[in-house]
Simulated scan of single mutants.
Amino acid sequence: MCDDESDDEEDDNKGAVLKMAASAPPTSQAPPQPSTVYPSLQTVGGSELKEKEDNDAYNNLLKTALIQGLHPTLKNQTMTTCIAWETKPLSEVWAHVLHAERNQTDIEQRHTDKDSLPAQARHYKTLQEMYKKQKPNQDAVSQLLDLEFDARRTFIDSDALKEEDRPTKILDAYPCFKDLNNVMDELRRILDKGNRKYIAEVKKRWEDFCSKVQFYRVWKKVMKPPMTLDGVEFAIALFRALPILFPSPAALPKKVGHASEALLHVFQPTEDPNVYLQKRSLFSPVLLLDGSNCLVTIGTTPITTFAKEDLYEGLLYLMAYYYTLHLTYPKCVATLLSVI
């Protein structure tokens, strides 16, 4: 009987164990996986976060060193195309650098092609064709003169041209320089090629120069007070006074009564311009003023005219022709022209 009771008790214990086992979670079930919706939360923490911060600081250092070490042209192009480069990945900044380099290489290649002698010869031929028209497009002429500058200056400045032959041969080859706008623009190319405002700056400096010396001229009694003169009379007085204020040690050429004759001659009512030109001993550019217009002449050859009201700027026109045609200053006014 005891054996039967012990068996019943054992069966009751087994049943309780089975019930507990049934209510417990199955041991074979996999543990829950971390969320994949925010993967950064798995890595940004502890040592991983510090490593990321260190890498960001290093990349920022590399980007700054890369940008600052570029050639100024590439640097400007990269910073223009890669907006907010400080916050961009290093790889993206590097891609912009390579793009800027390719662009610059293309620009330099086009510049090389532009400056090649065959290319400049084509520009010269185009320029000649344009001047067969009655009214050439002056904007197009200016652009061609920019492109053909190096070859032209090599031709003009060479020793192959004698001083006395230079004006005729150059103006035959480049009739555009009979236009004052073109010859003034050539002065800009020679003295400050990249400065489009150069002529305006020169005119302003000339105005300042004249205002600073006019009282000195009056004080030296080589000129009347300017308030008693109109614009043209003031310009004539200015041309006549400047060689006195800035004298040259050289003696005057024969048949030249005053050094200002190398700059300006005012015709008298009974004077014949053709006779004057044939007797002129100086070969240099000069301004000739009659009752209505002013004429630019080189040697005995008339070049172009302009309004007498612009005589005040006439000396700048003379300087432009000296530079454009690569002419030597007359010794009697060399000091003055060197100062200007």
Results as ranks from 00 to 15, higher is better:
Asn76Gly: 07
Arg153Met: 04
Glu148Ser: 13
Leu242Trp: 07
Asn103Leu: 15
Tyr216Met: 10
Gly69His: 07
Gly69Met: 09
Pro32Ile: 02
Trp219Leu: 15
Gln278Tyr: 03
Phe239Lys: 06
Gly194Ile: 05
Leu245Thr: 08
Met227Arg: 14
Ala200Phe: 09
Glu207Trp: 02
Phe267His: 05
Ile236Met: 08
Asp179Leu: 13
Asp8Trp: 01
Pro136Met: 11
Glu207Asn: 06
Gln77Trp: 06
Glu48Thr: 14
Ile244Leu: 14
Leu318Ile: 14
Lys204Cys: 02
Glu233Pro: 06
Leu229Asn: 09
Lys254Ser: 15
His123Gly: 08
Lys220Ala: 14
Ser211Gly: 03
Asp146Phe: 12
Tyr124Ala: 07
Leu171Arg: 11
Pro330Tyr: 11
Glu10Arg: 06
Thr154Ser: 05
Ala241Ile: 02
Leu295Asn: 07
Gln134Gly: 02
Leu18Arg: 08
Leu41Gln: 10
Val37His: 05
Glu164Cys: 03
Leu311Glu: 00
Asn293Lys: 15
Lys75Ala: 06
Thr126Val: 02
Ile236His: 04
Lys204Phe: 06
Val266His: 02
Ile156Tyr: 01
Pro89Trp: 07
Pro247Ala: 07
Pro302Ile: 03
Asp11Trp: 02
His71Asp: 11
Cys294Ala: 14
Asn60Met: 10
Leu263Asp: 01
Tyr312Pro: 00
Phe267Met: 15
Trp85Glu: 06
Ser91Tyr: 06
Gln134His: 12
Glu233Arg: 10
Val183His: 02
Leu311Val: 04
Leu49His: 04
Val286Cys: 13
Gln120Cys: 05
Thr328Arg: 02
Lys254Ala: 15
Thr168Arg: 13
Trp219Ala: 15
Leu127Tyr: 12
Glu5Ile: 15
Ala57Val: 11
Asp115Ser: 02
Tyr323Asn: 08
Tyr321Lys: 01
Ser23Pro: 00
Leu117Ser: 10
Phe149Glu: 00
Val339Met: 14
Lys255Asn: 12
Ile107Pro: 03
Thr305Arg: 12
Ile67Lys: 01
Gln268Asn: 10
Tyr198Arg: 03
Thr228Arg: 10
Trp94His: 12
Glu261Asp: 11
Asn137His: 08
Asn59Phe: 06
Asp3Gln: 13
Ala200Met: 05
His326Asp: 00
Thr78Ile: 05
